[in-house]
Write a protein that binds this DNA or RNA. Sequence first.
DNA 1: GACGATACGGATAGATGACTCCGTTTGTCC
DNA 2: GGACAAACGGAGTCATCTATCCGTATCGTC
Lengths: 211, 211
Amino acid sequence: MTTDQTSPATGVKPLRADARRNRARLLEVAEAVFTERGTGASTEEIAREAKVGIATVFRHFPTKEALLEAVLVRRLERLAEEGRRLMAETGPTYALFAFFDLVLDQSPVKNAFAAALADAGVDVRAATSEAGRALGEVLTVLLDGAQQAGVVRRDLGVPELTAILVGTCRMLEHLDGHPESAKRARAVVRDGLKARTGSPEEPLPQGGAPS
Amino acid sequence: MTTDQTSPATGVKPLRADARRNRARLLEVAEAVFTERGTGASTEEIAREAKVGIATVFRHFPTKEALLEAVLVRRLERLAEEGRRLMAETGPTYALFAFFDLVLDQSPVKNAFAAALADAGVDVRAATSEAGRALGEVLTVLLDGAQQAGVVRRDLGVPELTAILVGTCRMLEHLDGHPESAKRARAVVRDGLKARTGSPEEPLPQGGAPS
DNA sequence: GACGATACGGATAGATGACTCCGTTTGTCC
DNA sequence: GGACAAACGGAGTCATCTATCCGTATCGTC
């Protein structure tokens, strides 16, 4: 809805029909392949799976990195979309947690890929910033709502929230195939996010051992 | 202490003096390089940095995967060691948290590498199992102590704990350079780990949105 | 210090992956 | 339905990485 995924950008180019089809299919297939085999998957494999020649891949995405980027942006856009939907449908008290659950319920590999992008050393940050900012705005709304409703501690901002979400994804990867453990581990994070009801500063150890 | 790191295993081979030196240096350098540049770093680079020929690397570690494995095992052994030390010096109430802090205080890259190994597709699991089991035992003791002391919720086991630790590492990577945010995010996890003082089942949403 | 064995270094083989060139096909517009 | 531009396919190039071979240097022992 936000940006037409089949056209490269707010258009300087009309792009032919088959080209549009191929581009869309490539994005689809690339996401699947990258999530399954990791970012190390070869462009040739993606081309084969998408039933196009290698040249076609590079025609649409001048470099492998660009393809990676495009896939990531697409995913971020979808997430922002879902966040907005949840906010509207679910209301401020539950929307943030619903969003967390939605992300975490996706297969671990699906989330793994997002993280895998980071260590690809890709300059994703720059190109992602636009989509990332949109998602950031959605998260801001979700977080604000939850904090206003008193269900999330107030010392958290969007950066912390994002990091916690990513970390939790990685956490669940390690518990794949053990749903009971995963449920308990998720409860830990969820409880940690909740507004502290007891004393604001508890006497638990912060530093390391007394040296 | 547990296993002499300079000898390949409980010894069938006496191994010459220079060979022992080189092997140790290789492990040292490999850990540094892998943590900095990721597991994609070339063996040639490691050889150069360690001031040995490439052949020497492959003589000691028949395959790159074997080198990766050895580095990981070494790290796990050291962690187990530190865990034992903390248990003895710090006591059951604080030892687990101290261990968490110790791991998390290491530079993010240092922790990143452990996770990076996983997606290298390496059959690390098998070869790691021995060192992993040792660390697992230490964690069992730490967790038991903390639970007995009433500072950690009782529905957690070692698998959950391990996953949470790994996930928190990844979380902190994303907050590198923002110590204040990192502190707050860590507090979320720590509070989540604590024994629940209030009602055992809080009325917070579990599932997604009401569809 | 000399000899045998062990370990070393660097050049090289073999594999793989990103990216390009160019002849052929396909969509679009009249 | 014909002409022209746009897009396609896949063989080929270039770089890089893992792993090996073999002549040389070093260690350990007498």
